[in-house]
Simulated assay, not measured.
Amino acid sequence: MSGQNAVREFTAQMSVREGRWRLYVALLNTTEQWPEHRFGHSVPTFMDRTDALSVLGFAPVPGAEWEWTEDSETPDDPASPVVLIAAIRVCSWSGVSV
């Protein structure tokens, strides 16, 4: 039973689609619905992202930093629009320990 209360780390990711930013926490290997927050059309600030994570019940792992990756909408097409994806390690303070 002690393992059920262990704090687990997850990856929060943020991406933009059709001009709107979306932040979600990937709860891999679980049956839980992935928590999600949608922003407006402006790029979310560091505090916007931190506040959204808090509303979702998560906080960045101490020392974790946002890492940005560039991808493309159409793989293998150098003319494809760029897709930016940000990720950070988070832990749940709201009881998600699955």
Rank of each mutant, 00 (worst) to 15 (best):
Q4I: 13
R49K: 14
R8Y: 10
A86G: 07
Y24P: 00
Q33S: 12
T74A: 14
F10T: 00
Q33Y: 06
S94W: 00
W66H: 08
A59M: 13
E18W: 14
R38G: 09
R17S: 11
E32C: 01
D77A: 02
T45E: 11
L23I: 04
V16R: 13
V43E: 11
T50P: 02
G95I: 00
V55K: 13
D48E: 12
I85W: 13
W93G: 09
W21V: 04
S80N: 01
T31N: 09
T30E: 02
D76K: 06
E36V: 09
R20A: 12
D48S: 11
A59H: 05
Q33L: 12
P75R: 02
T74G: 03
F10L: 03
G57D: 02
T74H: 04
C91E: 14
L56D: 00
P60R: 06
E67N: 07
D71A: 11
E9M: 11
S2P: 03
A6T: 12
G63I: 11
P81C: 01
E73H: 11
V98M: 13
R20V: 07
F39R: 04
P44R: 03
A64N: 03
F10N: 02
T50A: 14
T30Y: 10
W66D: 00
R49N: 01
S92L: 03
S54E: 14
S92K: 01
S72V: 14
P44Y: 15
V98E: 15
S15M: 09
L27I: 07
V96K: 07
Q13E: 06
